[in-house]
């Protein structure tokens, strides 16, 4: 397993090129090209703003304003998380040709999927930043130092899950269907369209078992909620857990590796 991990590091050049290819290919032939990466979150944000200021002005706690921006802080990382996982389930099967015919470290593929998602996530950040400034949301500079760590923890967690899911889907084709349903539940089980404080204490207990709760709330605390970032113990615990998930995911992927070429 250590050897395989070293392999991944050796192939980092390939990973970088594949991520670049992924992004290039996605917008090839579209008029706006890379601009879509900005337009998508922008439109999303505008729609939410419209819904929460015009359609349902009273549907959210008055303390959180503008609520659309608050939601956006959670939706942006969630989109990265969920789309990466969903895409990673099929990435080995669609690249089956490569796995069957070329000696190729297959773990590169789910990793590339997650990283390409990360790039999209990062392209959404300027939009978020622009609106934070526009609404004069008071952002503490020292809080922002936590931001890269939150992203890193999410990255490790997502890669771990993506490795696990991609290898499992090769053997069990219904993983993708199970996952898409699970992700819907998971979305509502994560305080994205509501604030964790609104939740009754007993339910809150359950929600804290969800690692994405801590990540999303950390994003909200760092970017949106005023005051110093106080959740770092929980965040670090999730970080440790993420490393665990990554190791387990990689281990299982490594164990299933030899069967991939035959089953894919």
């Amino acid at each position: 397993m250590l050897l395989s991990l070293r392999h991944v590091i050796r192939y980092r050049g390939l990973v970088a090129s594949l991520v670049a290819r992924e992004l290039k290919a996605r917008y090839r032939g579209s008029v706006l090209g890379f601009f879509w990466s900005f337009v998508n979150p922008l439109l999303l944000l505008l729609v939410y703003t419209f819904v929460f200021t015009v359609v349902l002005p009273g549907a959210h706690p008055t303390a959180i304003e503008p609520f659309a921006l608050f939601m956006f802080c959670g939706i942006l990382p969630w989109t990265w998380f969920s789309s990466s996982l969903l895409e990673s389930t099929t990435v080995l099967i669609t690249s089956g040709n490569l796995i069957r015919k070329v000696l190729f470290p297959a773990e590169v593929l789910p990793i590339v999927t997650v990283l390409a998602g990360a790039v999209h996530f990062c392209l959404g950040l300027p939009i978020l930043a622009a609106f934070l400034v526009y609404y004069h949301v008071p952002v503490t500079f020292t809080d922002l130092l936590w931001f890269p760590l939150i992203v890193l923890i999410q990255l490790v967690l997502t890669v771990g899950l993506a490795l696990l899911l991609s290898a499992l889907t090769v053997h069990f084709r219904d993983v993708r269907d199970l996952l898409s349903n699970l992700l819907t539940l998971w979305f509502f089980g994560t305080p994205i369209i509501y604030a964790l404080d609104q939740v009754p204490p007993r339910v809150r207990q359950i929600l804290t078992l969800n690692p994405m709760t801590h990540l999303v709330v950390s994003y909200q605390d760092v970017l949106f909620t005023p005051g110093p970032f106080a959740r770092w113990p929980a965040l670090l615990a999730v970080g440790a857990g993420a490393i665990g998930v990554f190791l387990v995911g990689f281990f299982i992927f490594d164990r299933l590796r030899d069967t991939l070429a035959e089953e894919v």
Binding site: R21, A25, R28, G29, S95, K101, F104
Partner: peptide, 8 residues
């Protein structure tokens, strides 16, 4: 050419 991406 296994692994060529058609759009690139």
């Amino acid at each position: 050419g296994a692994g060529f991406h058609p759009e690139i």
